[in-house]
Design a protein around this nucleic acid. Structure first.
Lengths: 345, 345
DNA sequence: CTGAAAGCGCTAACAC
DNA sequence: GTGTTAGCGCTTTCAG
């Protein structure tokens, strides 16, 4: 059996509770005994049993994450590891660990979450995919269990702490960027309308067009899977239109990559014939041909702020509900045509 | 306070131990009481406290993972999420959860691992990056704690269960593929020699050349970071050689992407002037221009088999040490020139 | 087949 | 400042 607090206590000639206090770094312990106890711990190579500690103290110093179900396309997208990296860094700084489960079906996922929450395995949860009518979220809400959402909740916005970008504005700016470059036929390639991020971006797109008095055409608005395949299909539809768009806003770099490669196969030149602005600015947007002009949404920060604010909430239950907006930035590369003025200079 | 086993026991009119037996699905409990107890659990919405259970039973049903330190380039590479997905799926099937920590420095990582192992947070560990002289690994070995390595250990191969590809053969085949296509000036762009995967692949490369009686030139062998930046630098070095190589084997698709884009900038055509074979076959190898011929090493399976064999080891400590070799496969695309015969046909 | 009781290793009142 | 003691909620002998 492993070395316990009692062994340490015996060796240091103190009571177990004193050892416990030393671990917790209680202020009302004399420096001397602290030293003694620490020496004893070293000597025995003592490490606290975290299960026992969690059981007694009702806290785990662990954050739970609902991963996209294995097999989910989300895994393929660089978004996931990056946001995880951010979460992980925020947790590490506060000495929290990460605990994750997957479920294939929504039912399984819910069960896994219930287990880890009711089973007291974690002190709080970070949710990644804010679906409309999310069972996991309503469970957490009902249980009054600390959680934060990355993305935007579909309802009860004011009552759910979440970390998000201003996707409406971001997409408006992306679209305006194209409008400034003289484009009027701008198509939108987004993900599923079940996702709030798509809803917001579509809205931003429409706002930009309206502000510029450009009519909104339904055949220019496409919804595809957040994956490269989506990009290909979308392009095929768009180029067969009689009024072919001269530019595209694409909701994800990965999709944009599919778009680019399909356009290339069709012999359509970017940016000469079609301009493309995409989202996320993951590494590969720099390596594509041409390099993609992309909105950097600071994915890492999304995760980082999520774990920080979750930990705040865990450690202070009076912490108010918050909405944290992570700034975005348009990164210009070579996938868009130059504005008219420049051309004629 | 949450509902406990006692509440269930009271409602079902049995002893707490009986409830416990029902949870464990003990065979020596009458069907009737089982039903009664289960009904009571439902009624009270009972969920076992996993910390208490772990404390009493000395098992956690969770697997620990050492993540690459946040900030590590490894995170950027699609390898990581894919292997994680495999691990996660293997764990899910056996109802194991995942627990992860990061450390920035090796010291921090070791401490985190020590905490989770000695702290009894996990039943076993999966290690991802087999470095030469790995402290974490020697700690686990010394503690006689179940773990499996993804990759190849730098020593004590026979004593460490690991899941790996046959990287020597894989790279030999990649190189032979180029030789068959008439190439004699073949350069090798790999990662750091601290990584066993690089050592193996370099060996395979050299074997192929030797078998074909092609002299091995040191200036054709480059080691760069496993990231796109690496690819760019490597190309710059290689093209400035007076005997410029006609083909490249690249240890990673991401690097290969950097290679491709640099070659493009230099106006060097692939595959006409230089052929490229790369490794991993991640999604983007299909989307590059030209699409990359790449060795698919089944990253998902690497993770999947790792968690499966870890769980076997956890559940049966007599389980022998194993070496699991995941098959690879060369996926032909368009980044290599055709063999001579074909050209003249 | 089921119950009683002794821990698992730690924390947190409550004493002194 | 430090010790004593009673749990945290579960599993697991040992009886019967």
């Amino acid at each position: 059996m492993a070395v316990t607090i009692k062994d340490v206590a015996r060796l240091a000639n103190v009571a177990p509770s004193t050892v416990s206090r030393v671990i917790a770094n209680s202020p009302r312990i004399s420096e001397e005994t602290k030293r003694n106890v620490k020496k004893a711990m070293e000597e025995l190579n003592y490490h606290p049993n975290l299960n026992a500690r969690s059981l007694a103290s009702q806290s785990t110093q662990t954050i739970g994450i609902v991963m996209p179900s294995s097999g989910d396309v989300f895994f393929q997208n660089p978004f996931f590891p990056t946001v995880l990296q951010g979460i992980s860094e925020g947790a590490r700084e506060k000495k929290y660990a990460l605990h994750m489960t997957t479920g294939k079906l929504e039912r399984e996922t819910l069960e896994a979450v219930t287990n880890m929450v009711q089973g007291k395995r974690v002190d709080g949860m970070i949710l990644l995919n804010s679906k409309v009518d999310d069972k996991v979220m309503s469970f957490l809400k009902k249980s009054d269990f600390p959680f934060v959402l990355i993305g935007k909740p579909s309802n009860q916005i004011e009552e759910i702490t979440h970390v998000d970008n201003d996707n409406v504005r971001a997409m408006r700016e992306a679209t305006e960027y194209l409008i400034e470059r003289g484009h009027k036929q701008i198509a939108f390639i987004g993900g599923s309308l079940d996702l709030m991020v798509t809803v917001d971006r579509l809205l931003g797109y429409q706002q930009a067009l309206m502000n510029a008095n450009i009519p909104i055409k339904n055949e220019y608005i496409l919804h595809e899977e957040f994956l490269r395949g989506g990009g290909q299909e979308a392009v095929n539809e768009l180029v067969s239109l009689k009024e072919r768009p001269t530019s595209l806003v694409v909701a994800d770099d990965f999709m944009a990559l599919g778009v680019l490669s399909t356009l290339d196969e069709l012999g359509i030149k970017v940016p000469e014939e079609i301009s493309v602005v995409s989202f996320n600015n993951v590494l590969l947007s720099e390596l594509s041909k041409p390099p993609l002009t992309s909105i950097d949404i600071n994915i890492f920060d999304l995760g980082y702020q999520a774990s920080r604010s979750l930990i705040q909430k865990i450690e202070n239950s009076a912490e108010p509900t918050k909405r944290i907006i992570i700034p975005h930035k348009l990164v210009e590369r070579l996938s868009c045509s130059e504005p008219e003025e420049k051309k004629y200079r």
